[in-house]
Simulated assay, not measured.
Amino acid sequence: MLDAEDIALFRESIKGTKKLTQNTFVPPRTVNVKKKAEIREIREKQDTLFYFSDEYEPLLNDESAVKYLREGEDSYILKQLRRGDFSPELFLDLHGLTREQAKQELAALIQACESEHVYCASIMTGYGTYTLKRQIPRWLVQHPKVRALHQAPKEWGGEAAILVLLDV
């Protein structure tokens, strides 16, 4: 509690000032949930793209069927992929796309698999100049969510497609 002397001192120090009127209203800041979700989705897509380097050269055998198994995974998974035991739930067709477009679509596919909890996807590379057919596995082996990949069996596209098993 203030004593009379302190109150008098305060009144003496503010003598000659005007009282301020508060006539402005500052509305509370609203968060645009939709815009925030879009920004998060773009960031996640960019994060996924981060894994795809064009300079990285994994030890893949270009002569035989395309195949890769992440270290620590059961080798039986490759046999299952080759036989078609896993049915792809998402399909990505890269026919007619440039390398950069294909890289964007690949990142979007992995993101979609993760958000939809899809563990097996098929990527149609086609035959063409074999540019994408050779590059797609090199990009995929760099991503930490990719457990295994193998050239698709005939019913899922054969030599023109790759089956990917993801850790979702």
Rank of each mutant, 00 (worst) to 15 (best):
G16A: 03
K36G: 02
V33W: 07
I7F: 07
T17G: 03
E12M: 09
T17R: 13
R43C: 07
N32D: 11
K19T: 13
R43Y: 10
T21Q: 13
I39P: 00
E38N: 11
R40Y: 04
T30Y: 14
Q22M: 14
P28S: 04
K36Q: 13
R40H: 03
I14D: 09
E12I: 03
L9R: 12
L9W: 03
K18W: 09
V33E: 12
R40P: 02
I14M: 02
I7S: 00
I14C: 04
E38Q: 12
T21H: 12
A8Y: 01
E41K: 06
T30R: 15
I42D: 12
E12G: 00
T17Q: 08
N23F: 00
E38Y: 11
K15A: 13
T30K: 15
P28C: 05
I42F: 09
K36I: 08
I14A: 01
I39T: 12
K34Y: 07
T21R: 15
L20H: 10
K35E: 11
R29C: 04
F10H: 12
F10I: 04
K18G: 08
A37T: 06
N23G: 13
E41F: 10
R40V: 11
I39A: 09
F10K: 12
P27H: 04
P28F: 04
E12R: 15
L20T: 14
I7K: 08
V26Y: 01
E41V: 10
V26W: 08
T21K: 15
G16H: 01
K19F: 09
G16T: 10
E41A: 11
I39N: 10
E41Y: 03
A8M: 06
K35T: 11
T21P: 05
G16M: 01
S13K: 15
A37D: 04
R43E: 13
T21W: 05
D6M: 10
R29N: 06
I39S: 02
K18V: 07
V33H: 04
I42C: 00
K35Q: 14
P28D: 02
K34G: 02
I39H: 09
R11H: 10
I42S: 06
E12D: 13
